[in-house]
Design a protein around this nucleic acid. Structure first.
Lengths: 129, 129
DNA sequence: TATACTGTACATACTGATATGCACACTTCA
DNA sequence: TGAAGTGTGCATATCAGTATGTACAGTATA
């Protein structure tokens, strides 16, 4: 199954978030298909040199988001219809973007300046955390 | 001087942040003028029923932002040239962009997708109002 | 049904952020 | 100079988030 997920020690974000993100990405890329079984939490824990519980937490939250489905004693699977982007998150994203756009207009920022600002912040985000 | 700052217990954000924000607002509104002395940390601590140290922390961070200036043994004062209206807006803009970037990453959105989303929202904003 | 896989529950440890009290240092001015 | 006002340093308490190991429970199948 060559999971090839990995934990970055230099990444300040919690491990369970890193795991969640990489799984989301695998699914988004079509690398892992709907219905397909995910690595067991034990197997993944060993591969990542991380506690079972940490993987469990990642799976739990992905389950709550509807990205995967977990069955006691059976395993975890990519959800059939993957609402990969949570509606709630999408709504929050738009709220922040809208407020940002409003402020930018008030401050007289051009589209380019705003876009540049966003890029800069994304860079910092990727590096710092 | 009727400070009339207050701490909301129902507000989940830390007290020192609430204090910072209210002081920024007073200054932005011109309620507190450049050079004007702020309440002493002790006085404010008593008024807000909060520890001296909590107020100190708020003042420290406002000092680091250049919004106020603190002199040992003298007191704290509104900074002389407070480009606060703009700084404040700029800060809020960055906060929204940062949160948007965070969400986008969590949702697995690419840079392009995020930028497109922002453009779309800006268009709608320009038309609607 | 026994075995070897699955996931789960729980008690605990560690860390960083937040909030605190009190003794101390600086400044002003009567 | 001393009293009364400023801010500061430090040791500590509390809490939420993160991470852990191990004993337990469900499922499949030889």
């Amino acid at each position: 199954m060559h999971t090839s997920l990995h934990i970055s020690q230099t990444d300040a974000r919690p491990m369970y978030l890193q795991i969640m993100e990489q799984i989301r990405q695998r699914i988004a890329l079509g690398d892992w298909q709907p219905g397909q079984e995910l690595p067991s939490i034990r197997a993944l824990a060993v591969a990542l040199r991380v506690s079972v519980i940490t993987v469990k937490r990642a799976y739990e939250e992905l389950g709550a988001e509807g990205v995967i489905v977990t069955r006691h004693g059976r395993g975890s699977f990519v959800a059939d219809r993957v609402a990969l982007t949570n509606d709630l998150q999408e709504q929050r994203l738009d709220e922040h973007l809208l407020e940002a756009a409003r402020l930018a207009r008030v401050m007289g920022l051009s589209d380019d300046e705003l876009a540049t600002r966003l890029r800069k912040i994304k860079r910092k985000l990727g590096k710092g955390e």
